[in-house]
Design a protein around this nucleic acid. Structure first.
Length: 742
RNA sequence: GCGCGGUUAGCUCAGUUGGUAGAGCGCGUCAUUGACGUUGACGAUGUCACAGGUUCGAAUCCUGUAUCGCGCACCA
């Protein structure tokens, strides 16, 4: 019997001398702080995160089916946030479940150099702490700084992952910018270059004047902007524009061929007119892309600085002229306005047009402007000489299919399944609108393009040319180029005989956020189908965003960001994990609050006390999985329990972890603890011996099942409880077999 | 403009082949030497956004509307 006294209305234990034969740890509430790091160390030292060790030590049969997954590599830009914690939990559940099912299970970790994101982070620090720019240091010294930053960021991330209980195989850890991945990148580039899929050309690209680099369509964020819309007299026409500062070079006036208002003007016809800086000759162009309903149905085009205009110019083989330089200033073509920033120039230009009587009217106008995701600068489309991947070129070795068709095909034919399936339509929609992918970036941190120049000669290969006089391309690759190779560059590719590649590719699941469906998932499908003629993964499981209790996005500026580590410290990683799973379906955003976490901290303790009760009441029996003499009542309870286990196992296989978590929680608490254990007390005091024995066996076996089912969700507390089970021939819970019921 | 998702108890959300509305948190009342106060028992709160339709029967299927959110495209 426990003795206790009251201080500040709290009970304090002063003696537990006469407790039954039970581990004294059970006499205090469950303490995650004392437990979690210690347990993780035991796991790591066991080697069971590594499937080879599992086979070696007999935990996994060498011929059992495989389960493989790559970790979406976190960016080495700092620390993990709650979204990462959610991702790690979902994936760890999949992996621990597979491992317990006896599958040969590999979860391969790594980090992402995240080229532009990391570089701009280090640039900001450099600016803030030393007042320097990267050019003050030079390429080599700057890259040293970035590498140092990346290293320390990596170390932080690794220790955070361990805190969360992540059961990845650290022995296979990779980095998107290490030597092996660099070889994979160069090999992939070379093959695509030789197949004519990678080309260099003057094309219109998204130029970030602040970051001084090209970015891809997917790195653009559209922001609503209130501005003016100007109607200008352009010879006999009225043209509408929101950007008068680009109009200096406009010598083509375009209208729809069927527009009845302008039938008298013929395609190619020249007209003389007075324009901003004097008289010019304009040419009429008829093009079907013109919207007759918009404005006056007439527009002039600026092919150098507009994607749509560029395409019109390409169709009609028109001249293209640069108006704005790469710093966002007007070029000499602007005459008296040359050298001015476009923002400053706009009003002055309108003033001049007004003085010449060329402004018809001005309206208020709202439209979306393109801004760079990283620097938030307004994107200025520019025609530049850049490297592209051609998504529309038929590939000989692939039955003349294009990259677009390859990407589309494997999802359409069901080889790759996206969960939830509504994202399949989103994926199709994106591919249909896909343009060539610009892969060169004018930043220093990243994979250098494996191309060398000497005069007019170009050389592309895996290694640099031997002779002197060749200079390597200054640019680096879009970070998603190397990310696209991730499922196989981590498994030994380009060595086609690498054992891991043969054993674990294609991977089983790719679990990631729906926000990078295009950036990453699509690129992996592209690279893998093209380079390996194989899908990168069979299933894509998309998770949503973790929001705060009010449903807002978590951000540092809002001050509502939750630190998974701090929360784990306070409530235990198990509680944080559980709270991230329950109520969170695939593809949907979820909400996080401390109340929710607290509930699962209580649950961990409940398990602790349930175990304590059972062990202290059953120390006279040994757990017997094959016990036969159950009472009728207990047989019914077993039937109930086993049908739940069957149901749960099915749902685990269908990735419905939120349901399983909820069900096992409800069963343990509302059914097992509140009803079954309560009635057991009576049996233990008043029942017949065979009733007692039957119930003891039921309780022992059932808590064992619960602990096993719960292990993928709450690995620490379950492993700790398991370690105190009086079972002989016991392995670590992480490699125990998942309960199977027929 | 095109597409997607949500709308269920005060809050967060379940509810997958259509069969009398569920959980957690919160709230209220009571209990307490009990495995556990990190507890237990009991309880209140819902025209399942709205309007039609299919059906013996609809939160669930169909059509439309409203509203919130997201994605894509884009207007010169």
């Amino acid at each position: 019997m426990l003795l206790f006294f009251v201080i500040n209305s709290k009970k304090c234990y002063i003696s537990y001398m006469d407790e039954p034969n039970i581990n004294p740890k059970f006499l205090k509430p469950y303490d995650p702080k004392e437990t979690e790091d210690r347990i993780y160390k035991i796991w790591e030292e066991s080697g069971f995160f590594n499937p080879d060790v599992c086979i070696e030590k007999g935990a996994t049969d060498v011929n059992s089916p495989t389960f493989s997954m790559v970790l979406p590599p976190p960016n080495v830009t700092g620390t993990l946030h709650i979204g990462h914690a959610s991702m790690l939990t979902i994936e760890d559940i999949m992996v621990r479940f597979a491992r317990m099912q006896g599958k040969r299970t590999l979860w391969l970790p790594g980090t992402d150099h995240a080229a532009i994101a990391t570089q701009s982070k280090v640039e900001k620090i450099l600016e803030k702490e030393e007042g320097k720019r990267k050019t003050d240091l030079g390429r080599e010294e700057f890259l040293n700084r970035v590498n140092t930053f990346a290293k320390s960021s990596h170390d932080t991330i690794v220790s955070q992952m361990k805190k969360m209980g992540t059961s990845v195989d650290w022995s296979r850890e990779a980095f998107t910018l290490d030597d092996k991945r660099n070889l994979a990148v160069r090999t992939a580039f070379k093959k695509m270059y030789e197949d004519g899929l990678i080309y260099r050309g003057h094309r219109i690209v998204n130029w970030d004047p602040k970051g001084q680099t090209v970015i891809s369509d997917d790195e653009i964020v559209y922001k609503e902007e209130k501005t003016k819309f100007y109607y200008l007299k352009y010879g006999p026409f009225i043209i509408g524009t929101a950007r008068p500062e680009t109009k200096f070079g406009d010598k083509y006036v375009v209208m729809h061929p069927e527009d009845k208002r302008y039938l008298e003007y013929k395609d190619g016809q020249k007209i003389e007119l007075e324009w901003i800086n004097g008289p010019i000759t304009a040419t009429i162009i008829k093009d079907e892309s013109i919207d007759m309903e918009f404005g006056t149905g007439v527009m002039t085009i600026t092919p150098w600085h507009s994607v749509v205009d560029f395409e019109i110019a390409e169709r009609h083989k028109l001249d293209k002229e640069q108006i704005i330089d790469k710093y966002g200033k007007l070029l000499p073509i602007a005459g008296e306005f040359a050298g001015m920033k476009i923002k400053d120039a706009r009003e002055k230009i309108i003033a001049k047009l007004e003085s010449k009587g060329l402004v018809e009217k001005i309206e208020d106008y709202t439209h979306n402007i393109a801004t760079a995701e990283r620097t938030e600068a307004t994107i200025e489309p520019q025609v530049m000489n850049q490297w592209f991947i051609d998504v529309n070129k038929p590939i000989k070795d692939q039955d003349n299919k294009t990259l677009k068709e390859l990407m589309l095909g494997v999802v359409k034919n069901g080889e790759i399944k996206i969960i939830p399936d509504r994202f399949e339509r989103v994926y199709y929609n994106w591919i249909e609108n896909l343009r060539d992918w610009c892969i060169s970036r004018q930043i220093w941190y990243g994979h250098r393009i494996p191309v060398w120049y000497k005069g007019d000669e170009i050389y592309c290969n895996i290694e640099a040319p031997k002779e002197d006089g060749w200079a390597q391309d200054e640019d680096t690759l879009d970070t998603w180029f190397s990310s696209g190779l991730w499922t196989f560059s981590t498994l030994g590719w380009p060595d086609l005989n690498a054992p891991d590649l043969k054993t674990y590719h294609p991977t089983d699941v790719l679990e990631t956020g729906y926000d990078i469906l295009f950036f990453w998932v699509a690129r992996m499908i592209l690279m893998s189908t093209y380079l390996l003629d194989e899908i990168p993964f069979k299933n894509v499981y998309m998770h949503g965003l973790v929001r705060d209790a009010q449903g807002r996005k978590m951000s540092k500026s809002l001050g509502n960001a939750m630190d998974p580590l701090e929360l784990s410290e306070k409530y235990g990683a198990d509680a944080v994990r559980m709270s991230l799973i329950i109520g969170t379906g695939p593809g949907n955003d979820s909400r996080m609050s401390e109340d929710k976490i607290r509930a699962y901290k209580n649950y961990a303790n409940k398990l602790w006390n349930i175990t304590r009760f059972i062990l202290s009441n059953t120390d006279d029996v040994k757990i017997d999985a094959d016990f036969k003499n159950y009472t009728e009542k207990d047989v019914a309870l077993i039937k109930e329990r086993d049908s739940l286990i069957k149901e749960i196992t099915k749902e685990m296989e269908e990735f419905k972890f939120y349901l399983v978590g909820e069900k096992i929680y409800a069963y343990t608490w509302a059914r097992f603890a509140d009803i079954i254990i309560e009635e057991s007390k009576k049996i233990f005091t008043e029942g017949r011996d065979e009733e007692k024995l039957s119930r003891k066996q039921f309780l022992l076996n059932t808590i064992g099942d619960i602990i096993k089912i719960l292990h993928p969700f709450m690995p620490f507390v379950t492993e700790e409880i398991w370690s105190m089970f009086p079972t002989t021939d016991k392995k670590l819970l992480m490699v125990e077999k998942w309960p199977v019921r027929e």
